[in-house]
């Protein structure tokens, strides 16, 4: 099986994805390089602001539950353990 979500608790096939072709991959690598040229000039204050925002998205009760369910569906982690490492990611 290639790139795919399969529920390990049931064996149910959920979704599969095509791997990027070489051209699309090349575009993404170029995009990363271009992004670096300007991102490296950003300040710690700007980067901190964005990273705190990412933490707040992970902290949001509704969104964090959705992310946890996605993990359970794709790799079988008990939902009750969602707080143990995901909270630390904040």
């Amino acid at each position: 099986m290639g790139i795919a979500s399969i529920n390990p608790a049931t064996g149910e096939f959920l979704q599969s994805f095509e791997a990027l072709d070489e051209d699309t991959l090349g575009v993404k690598l170029q995009r990363a390089d271009r992004a670096f040229q300007s991102y490296r000039e950003t300040s710690f204050t700007e980067r901190s602001h964005w990273l705190h925002k990412a933490a707040s998205i992970l902290r949001n009760e509704h969104q964090s539950l959705e992310f946890a369910k996605l993990m359970v569906l794709e790799m079988g982690k008990p939902l009750t353990q969602r707080s143990q490492r995901s909270k630390s990611a904040l």
Partner: peptide, 21 residues
């Protein structure tokens, strides 16, 4: 086996305001 998690994480960084790429 976790492509949807991978895409969700990319969306979190975009929603947080990190510049494209």
């Amino acid at each position: 086996n976790v492509p949807q998690c991978a895409l969700a994480i990319e969306s979190i960084f975009a929603a947080a305001g990190f510049p494209e790429g």
